[in-house]
């Protein structure tokens, strides 16, 4: 798993690549919490190159959402691969998150 961040307008865009599983979800969590800890309140997670996620990774998405809701921030997801979207649908996560087709639409 790798996270590449950039600043675009009011948002910090974090592009995730690789796998988020039980062996590395805490790394993902630490990096996301670091971004929030620096005061970034509006985050886009670009999932274009995220090709696997298990429940431990989904948990980090939920924790991030709860945290940003608490600070009136925004968490937008985009470019999700169909297989990952399916897991979000099954988990009921698709209705919890704002999911956009592309990064441009997510930057609002």
């Amino acid at each position: 798993m790798e996270l590449t961040t950039s600043k675009k307008g009011d948002f910090t865009v974090a592009a995730i690549s690789g796998r988020i599983d039980t062996t590395n979800y805490n790394e993902f969590e630490t990096q996301i919490m670091d971004i929030i800890g620096k005061g970034e309140n509006n985050i886009v997670l670009n999932c274009e190159n995220l090709n696997y996620i298990s429940s431990s990774g989904l948990r980090v998405f939920l924790i991030t959402q709860k945290k940003l809701m608490g600070s009136k921030g925004k968490l937008h997801l985009c470019n999700m691969q169909p297989a990952i979207k399916e897991i979000f649908d099954i988990s009921g996560f698709s209705s919890i998150f704002k999911i956009f087709d592309n990064e441009e639409e997510a930057l609002v």
Binding site: S55, S56, L62, Q65, K66, M69, G92, I96, F97
Partner: peptide, 11 residues
């Protein structure tokens, strides 16, 4: 909703 969802139990 996100507020009410428990962290965990998904696996």
């Amino acid at each position: 909703s996100a507020e009410d969802r428990q962290i965990g139990g998904l696996g």
